[in-house]
Nucleic acid binder design. Structure first.
Lengths: 159, 159
DNA sequence: CTAGTTTCGTTAGTGACATAAACGTTTATG
DNA sequence: CATAAACGTTTATGTCACTAACGAAACTAG
């Protein structure tokens, strides 16, 4: 999934043109490229944003906690937090109650960066959805949220 | 993009929960896993379906043509067609008009497999969208199609 | 006709990402 | 107290989208 090369999209076989999973893949790909490129110009990644936003909303959390909340794997969280710590956006301190845990908290600089990223991400979402009216955007978000929710509820959901 | 692990999705920071690009990534990931798993049980891949469907709709095409129409890279088309040829779903014959080209055409067996995959893919899409009403499904597809279209029209489009 | 550019099929490789495996440490649980 | 589970971490795997390069053939221009 994720294909660009879409200048020639009009040649797509009609049978494929409205397949939901295909449309989702295409849209997600475009979105990802757009957001990633935009965030790169602020020396950031989507994960940086996800982690900082989560930390802001929650206050502080262990790495495993953050992992669950953001959907970023425990294994990748290590490197991500290294980067954020390097830039002094977060602090890692050992949890006195549980010596296995690190307590991750967001710093002042991290908050600043977050509000910068917040604006940037919002602008990028606007750019992404530029072709849709405000009402349509809301509707789309709504449908997607319901799709995601219904899906994790039923089926192969996360056991 | 593409994260599972979503049993814990309810823990997601509210700020992230309705970010369009994130929802798209999640939905696309779920869709991809579902479709891939389903097609795997028929010894197939999404590309197999895309290629066969395109061939059926177009009749026959060169590899480069197929590549443009499906969005599968020229480089990857080689292996894909090897697989399809192995299973006798398609035929590769040299183009007498242009010795660089292969003319790819779908075989009887390919057509049979296609209609099998067609049913399977449709069923899988239904499963994917199980949480949405018929009207909502249509609406979602519509919005996604418009999003994809508007996006390739504007911005960093093809070339 | 010749020289340069483009297209075709093909091979090989890169980089990002999701995900698994395994490990030592520490904390719960039976 | 023994066994299981959770934590942070390192290392590895497989899948994709995507690039680079190549020889062969085909257009395009001078």
């Amino acid at each position: 999934m994720i294909q660009v090369m879409s200048a020639t999209e009009s040649l797509t076989a009609p049978r494929l043109r409205r397949v939901p999973s295909r449309l989702l893949a295409q849209a997600a790909g475009q979105a990802d490229r757009l957001i990633s490129a935009g965030l790169a110009q602020a020396d950031a990644h989507k994960w940086h944003y996800a982690a900082l936003a989560t930390l802001h909303d929650v206050g502080s959390a262990s790495q495993a906690d953050l992992s669950r909340r953001t959907g970023i794997y425990r294994s990748d969280m290590v490197a991500l937090l290294n980067e954020l710590e390097e830039r002094a956006y977060v602090r890692r301190s050992p949890d006195p109650q549980d010596k296995r845990r690190n307590i991750i908290s967001i710093t002042k600089r991290g908050e600043q960066q977050l509000s910068k990223l917040d604006k940037l991400v919002n602008a990028l979402q606007d750019e992404l959805l530029a072709g849709l009216s405000a009402r349509d955007r809301e509707h789309l978000v709504d449908l997607l949220a319901r799709l995601v929710a219904s899906f994790s509820a039923a089926g192969a959901g996360g056991q």
